[in-house]
Design a binder for these strands. Structure first.
Length: 405
RNA sequence: GGGAGUGUCGCAUAGUGGCAAUUGCACCUGACUGUAAAUCAGGGGGCUUCGGUCUGCGCUGGUUCGAGUCCAGCCACUCCCA
């Protein structure tokens, strides 16, 4: 099976500028392509992960990836598909984030022996001269056309500043720059980047009279049309400090039935034939097996086999009664929080970070959603005696181990 | 620069001068389940010795016994004119 076919069967391909040409190039392993990552936070998230997987697949097929870190574009912020303007980040924050990105990426992409390279567009964007830029690049962009782009639509209500409007030009310039300096003839990215990417191919055509290609991958949406990899509390991060491997595992273990197969196809390296086979008989308990596979595979890819096993064990211990509780998220309560070796249930929950406030804890307790060592606690005044390990449970799925510290 | 408007819980929306403040979505808890979906029931600022108490409707002041609600100034955004 060719890479292209694989990508297609996994449902990863969204839009392509020239299907035949792209197919040929990437199947032959002759493409030099880039994907841009703007350092908007100090950790990558699932969307980045998909892009990195795409890179890896293409790299395995012999193509050469360029990781473009958006140290320069991050100074602006991409308005595409956003309803609000991003907070402007300081130079320091951006540099810090770039470093975090680099560190995480080396897990997924092989940069040894020039098999892949990483560049930072701060190196060329920050020194641009305004007037020169306008004369050399600005002339190729039609404002009329840009205004008609779908990706700005959400901005019509809230407004779009000239500042952000320039983002597209920056990104187009990146592609142009990489094309001339590195022979990079393809740009890939999320489907929300389509307009920005076309800006680049057109700039290259207009300015150099040469062809470059762009391809987007499907955004991972759940069956309700929302972006996956987000929780109410924010993104699901790849950084174990920000989203623990167990939480990460649980997120995928809990996806809706309707989304499992899609996620397996798009996010894992489980052979496509296997997934297609599973798809044929999905009902009842099969869904749980599939979800477990998804969660395990993904956790293993992101955090390593060992962490994946631990998460799986913990999940089994907690939900199935087998296995051990040793890898459960744990909080050690310092002795000075205790009176006579006990602590109030509400305080305990807050200490463990299970709830943001005591009122919230009280509500949970009163509604019967809290148990300690498997015994329901309904009195908000209850004092919990801590000795050794105590298992705290909030709601149906949140388990937490408490130890003495 | 001129004119018209808007700014209330994560988003969206209601609010005659006496409200911790309406409704929808999302969210949280319970029941049923498969750690799913759908459905049904409950919850909603913080702290509380459960008597209260503090904070709160863009920001700052003012009028008033009392202001999300009236007045002034400021800020942000939207629309029209330049």
């Amino acid at each position: 099976m060719t890479v292209f076919e694989e990508l297609q069967r996994r449902g990863l391909l969204a839009q392509l500028t020239d299907e035949e040409e792209i197919k040929e190039l990437i199947n032959a392993g002759k493409a030099t392509f880039y994907i841009g990552f703007d350092p908007t936070a100090d950790s990558l998230h699932v969307g980045h992960f998909m892009a990195l997987c795409l890179m890896k697949r293409l790299q395995m097929a012999g193509n050469k990836p360029i990781v473009l870190l958006g140290g320069g574009t991050g100074m602006i912020g991409d308005p595409s598909g956003k309803s609000d303007m991003r907070k402007m980040m300081t130079r320091e924050t951006i540099d810090h984030n770039v470093e975090c990105f680099k560190k995480q990426m080396s897990r997924f992409i092989d940069f040894s022996d020039g098999k892949a390279i990483a560049v930072n567009n701060a190196d060329w964007l920050l020194d641009l001269n305004y007037v020169d830029m306008l004369r050399e690049i600005g002339v190729y962009f039609s404002v009329n056309k840009m205004l008609s782009f779908e990706c700005y639509k959400q901005r019509w209500e809230k407004g779009l500043t000239f500042f952000e409007f320039n983002y597209m030009i920056m990104q187009s310039y990146d592609f142009y720059k990489l094309f001339t300096d590195y022979g990079c003839n393809m740009q890939f990215g999320g489907d929300d980047q389509w307009a920005n990417m076309l800006g680049g191919t057109e700039l290259i055509r207009k300015k150099l009279g040469k062809d470059a290609y762009a391809m987007t991958i499907t955004l991972l949406l759940n069956s309700e049309g929302k972006k996956m990899g987000k929780t109410e509390k924010g993104a699901v991060w790849l950084d174990p400090e920000k989203t623990s491997p167990y939480e990460f595992f649980q997120y995928w273990r809990n996806v809706a039935d309707a989304d499992v197969i899609k996620c397996l196809k798009m996010l894992t390296f489980v052979p496509i034939e296997e997934i297609e086979e599973m798809e044929k008989h999905m009902e009842g308990a099969e869904f749980n097996k599939a979800k477990e596979l998804l969660a395990y595979e993904l956790t293993a890819l992101v955090h390593g086999e060992e962490e994946a096993k631990k998460a799986l064990d913990t999940a089994k211990a907690v939900f199935g009664g087998a296995g051990s509780s040793e890898n459960m998220p744990t909080t050690a309560i310092p002795a000075d929080k205790l009176t006579d070796g006990a602590i109030n249930i509400l305080d305990l929950m807050v200490e463990c970070g299970l709830v943001p406030t005591k009122s919230e804890a009280r509500r949970n307790v009163q509604q019967g959603g809290v148990s300690v060592n498997n015994e329901k606690v309904t009195d908000p005044k209850a004092m919990i005696t801590l000795d050794g390990e105590t298992i705290l449970k909030k709601g149906k799925k949140v388990f937490h181990k408490v130890t003495l510290g």
